[in-house]
């Protein structure tokens, strides 16, 4: 592979079409998205098949622990009441991002031509971030009748200065939110594949990819938590009633 081909492959990581459904190209990132979705649906079906008041199955226990942990985490940001109301969105994001991040650490999976961990593809994280942006605007209008936008005019004297800054800040959010997640996971995948290449040449350096994998396990969890937390912070700010 020439330098040119490598750079092109890196910049369009996971974006060449595998096949077409009508006019829509299906890329390996989309297939990865389907795989993660199927896994989460299977998990949800397995858990909710036999729900019990006092959970007997191990799986139900684990997921109840996860949901309660996420609830206590988000209620630190927006209070327990609103945390229950808005929990489905941050919790879904957390589960999806975590499973997607960890799917990149399964040794063979990311090197298959038809699979890319969805969150290592900018298109996927950008989609998530745009949804967060739109949901924040929807919440601000529906819950507080636009009172959220008052912060744009906060010091009345400085409005001509602060209004453009506030609008830019609001519009930059989806960029930073999506770029942070994508860059972290993509950097991890790249570092891992480089390390594996080094081990193929010098087998003596085997601990190197193991160390990177351990680092990526922490980073994958933290990035999922960051995305969830920031979603909760934005939604919490948009739905806050000022008295």
């Amino acid at each position: 592979m020439s330098t040119h081909e490598f750079a092109l492959a890196a910049s369009e990581h996971g974006s060449d079409a595998l096949f077409y459904i009508g006019p829509a190209p299906v890329t390996s990132a989309v297939v990865g998205l389907w795989a993660v979705m199927a896994f989460i649906l299977l998990l949800a079906w397995l858990v909710t098949r036999r729900l019990e008041m006092v959970p007997n199955s191990r799986l139900q226990n684990v997921l109840e622990l996860a949901i309660e942990g996420l609830h206590s985490w988000t209620s630190r940001i927006m209070g327990p009441e609103r945390a229950w109301r808005y929990l489905p969105i941050p919790a879904t994001f957390f589960l999806f991002i975590l499973i997607s991040n960890y799917s990149g650490l399964i040794p063979i999976l990311p090197h298959l031509p038809w699979y890319v961990p969805p969150t290592s593809h900018w298109g996927v994280t950008a989609g998530l971030a745009v949804f967060v942006f739109l949901f924040v605007q929807y919440t601000a209008v529906k819950e507080t009748r636009g009172a959220y936008y008052k912060h744009l005019f906060d010091p009345p004297l400085l409005t001509p200065l602060m209004l453009p800054l506030g609008i830019i800040e609001e519009l930059v959010r989806p960029f930073s939110l999506s770029l942070r997640l994508f860059a972290n996971i993509f950097a991890g995948e790249t570092a891992l594949s480089v390390m594996i290449g080094i081990v193929a040449a010098i087998p003596f350096l085997l601990p190197l990819p193991i160390f990177v994998t351990a680092l990526e396990m922490v980073a994958g969890f933290v990035q999922a938590l960051i995305f969830t937390t920031l979603t909760a912070v934005y939604v919490g700010a948009a739905s806050e009633h000022h008295h």
């Binding site: 040119h4 092109l8 890196a10 910049s11 942070r180 860059a183 972290n184």
Partner: peptide
């Protein structure tokens, strides 16, 4: 953890920008 992730993301923005621009320079 939150603030470390914010700081780290700046370095990773540079990393992502290099990869995205690499396609332009060599393409």
């Amino acid at each position: 953890i939150l603030s470390l992730a914010f700081i780290e993301s700046l370095t990773l923005f540079v990393f992502a920008m290099i990869f995205i621009l690499a396609g332009r320079v060599t393409g």
